[in-house]
Simulated assay, not measured.
Amino acid sequence: MTSPLVTLPLGAAFVALALVSACAVGLIARFAARWPLPPAQRLPSTALRAAVVFAPAVLGALGCAALAFPSPFLGCHCAEHGLHHPHLCALHLAFALPLVAPSAYLLGSWLAFTAPGVLRLARDTIASARWTRAARRLPVVALDGVAVRLADCGARSAFTIGALSPIVVVDRVLWRSLSDEARRAVVHHERAHVERRDGLTLLALRLCIALFPSPAGQRLIEAWRAAAEQCCDRYAAGKLGDPAAVAAALVAVEKIRAQGSRGAALPAHAMGALAGGDLSRRVLALLGADQPRQGAEPVLANDVLATAIVAAGTLLLTFVWPGDEFHHAIETLIGHLIH
């Protein structure tokens, strides 16, 4: 009977491919950052930004699938290529026995290296979940059909919190300080975060960076955040039918925040309407000529789901092409490395 330990090489192959891809993505991101976008230019789509962060995990999974199931519709790969190199095949796990020990060392080192980041993410997730449960008990006001929890946040902020069942929270002082039109802009901006499930996406992005560290990991997440904020700005502009009103609301929120914030930190997984240092870009993008009219707001979709759909389609393609060729090339390389 084959020991379950022989599956370790497949896990090590997944980790190795993902880590190499993470380094490549991070280096490309650092190189691309030397050419910043013009101030008024709209950022690339949030799905594309998220896909860049998810790329290492997706590429690792695709490569591992090609290794485990080479040409699944064309017969036995192992019989065709012989035993001149180790085999990583789901049908003949025993052929991977020579790779069990080095795979165990690789996986152990990876787990030890990533454990602090994963534990930090787990603590942030638990704290955010507790914050969300407490926020659900706060007083609720409804505006344009959106339930808003009013809280004494300490920071003059409006944000969405919660991964699976998100809610909108607005600081009580900020709410009282805003005009009716600015309140509507803020509420619809946050509603877009809710509909897109951006809290879930942020959690998945942070998990991917924790498991497969990248030289530009945090920068990639912040780039996705910036694109998500612009997407929600456009949604609010479509709902109000006036991009200038949303831009004015952003400026108003930033003024109130700068004057009255006591420096309290928001939960780690909160998606806020604050513009911060990106205020100029967001305002200029809102005032651009190609903004949607009322009733023509962008379609909202979850970036994790979009990436998963594309990855599933690519996985099916991997079984057909390059399949056997890619599988055999990796196995041959492994054979040269261990002999």
Rank of each mutant, 00 (worst) to 15 (best):
T2I: 15
P4D: 06
L5E: 07
V6A: 02
L8F: 13
L8N: 08
P9Q: 06
P9E: 06
G11H: 09
A12T: 03
F14K: 02
F14Y: 15
A16D: 05
L17K: 02
A22F: 04
A24N: 05
A24Q: 05
G26V: 01
P39E: 08
A40R: 14
R42K: 11
P44Y: 12
A50V: 05
P56V: 01
V58C: 09
G63E: 08
L67D: 07
A68Y: 13
P72Y: 01
F73H: 04
H81D: 10
H81V: 15
L83K: 09
H85R: 15
H85Q: 13
P86K: 07
P86G: 11
L88Q: 02
A90P: 03
A94N: 03
F95V: 10
F95M: 11
V100R: 12
A101I: 14
S103A: 13
S103H: 01
Y105P: 00
L106V: 15
L107F: 12
L111C: 13
A115W: 12
G117P: 00
V118C: 11
L119S: 01
R130P: 00
R130N: 08
R133S: 12
R133L: 12
R133P: 03
A134R: 15
R137I: 03
L138P: 08
P139V: 04
P139G: 05
V140W: 01
L143K: 04
G154V: 01
A158S: 06
A158F: 01
T160W: 01
I161G: 07
A163F: 09
S165R: 14
I167D: 03
V169Q: 08
W175I: 04
E181Y: 01
E181V: 14
A185F: 11
V186E: 07
H188R: 14
R191C: 01
A192D: 05
E195Q: 10
R196E: 12
G199I: 07
G199W: 10
L202N: 06
R206S: 11
I209C: 03
F212M: 03
S214A: 14
Q218I: 13
E222G: 07
A223N: 13
A226R: 14
E229D: 13
A236D: 08
A236H: 09
A237G: 06
G238R: 02
K239T: 00
L240V: 00
L240F: 05
G241H: 02
A244S: 12
A245D: 07
A245H: 06
A248W: 00
I256G: 01
A265Q: 10
A265P: 03
A268D: 07
A268Q: 04
A275R: 00
G277K: 11
S280H: 10
R281P: 06
A285R: 05
L286H: 04
L287R: 15
G288I: 00
D290F: 06
R293L: 12
Q294F: 06
Q294Y: 08
A296N: 12
E297H: 03
E297G: 03
L300T: 02
A301R: 15
T307Q: 11
I309M: 13
V310H: 04
T314Q: 10
L316T: 08
L317Y: 00
L317F: 02
G323V: 00
H328W: 04
I330V: 15
E331L: 05
E331P: 01
I334S: 11
H336F: 11
I338A: 04
H339N: 13
